[in-house]
């Protein structure tokens, strides 16, 4: 039997008395792209942090790329790339220095080639030796993608990557993701904006109050259908937030 790229069973996370996640089941095969929609505070970041080994679940099983989260933290971390709305970049270092730093931390072979490759991928080759401090928000986010790709992870976790990006940068990010998606990578993207990332996804899920309340194939699903489902589960009061 083939091992799914990402598997979560009965995953829960409590913060004291608060149930941030209750009974999450996920199954993604290699190369699939899942978008998780949900309002703020639904548990999206918590879910990503658990999958990325930044947070321990209260209970449940998580396997990423065939490795159990509880046992093989190290082997698993090599296969995960995380892009969040925070860049994880050092602002007083150049793009090149940042990438070289993370590359060394992952023990990447042929690091120089890799750095050239990912910089080209995100279109920042010309600004390789500029301090990250001098970058625009959009450029920082692109470099953040390069950072997440430096060790060629097979699983990409994107937590609200569109936050704070202007129109141009948003389009650029979508284009980049589309290219990444063509590869063998398995991707989970979280967002609170319905339209974003949808055209890239194979599946879409809605997360509300720590539960996945809706899961559907994107093929044949219209934005209007999705909107109806979303507001039915989330509640009308959120309609303004998301538009």
């Amino acid at each position: 039997m083939k091992e799914p790229a990402i598997l979560a069973e009965a995953l829960t996370k409590d913060f004291g008395p608060i149930h941030a996640l209750s009974g999450i089941d996920l199954r993604l095969e290699k190369g699939e792209f899942l978008t998780i929609l949900g309002p703020n505070g639904a548990g999206k970041t918590t879910l990503i942090k658990i999958l990325a080994t930044l947070m321990r679940p209260t209970s449940g099983l998580v396997r990423v790329a065939g490795y159990d989260l509880a046992e093989a933290g190290e082997a698993l971390r090599r296969r995960i790339g995380v892009i969040s709305h925070q860049t994880y970049l050092y602002e007083n270092l150049t793009a090149y220095e940042n990438l070289r730093f993370y590359g060394r931390m992952y023990g990447v072979q042929d690091l120089e080639d890799h750095i050239r490759g990912v910089l080209e991928e995100v279109g920042l080759k010309g600004r390789r030796d500029h301090l990250v401090r001098t970058y625009s928000r959009g450029m920082q986010q692109r470099l953040s993608i390069a950072r997440a790709l430096i060790h060629d992870p097979s699983v990409l976790l994107l937590d609200e990557p569109y936050t704070g990006l202007d129109q141009h940068a948003t389009r650029m990010l979508t284009g980049l993701l589309a290219r990444l998606r063509d590869g063998e990578r398995t991707v989970i993207l979280t967002t609170h904006q319905l339209s974003q990332g949808l055209e890239l996804s194979d599946f879409v899920a809605i997360l509300v109050r720590g539960r996945i309340v809706y899961q559907e194939k994107v093929a044949g699903l219209s934005l209007a259908d999705l909107e109806d489902a979303y507001f039915q589960h989330v509640g009308q009061e959120y309609r303004w937030d998301t538009q």
Partner: peptide, 17 residues
């Protein structure tokens, strides 16, 4: 405090080992 800016500490924690 420098590692907390831009959540770099998370970037470090993601690294294997």
């Amino acid at each position: 405090a420098l590692e907390r800016e831009k959540d770099c500490i998370h970037g470090l924690m993601l690294c294997p080992g």
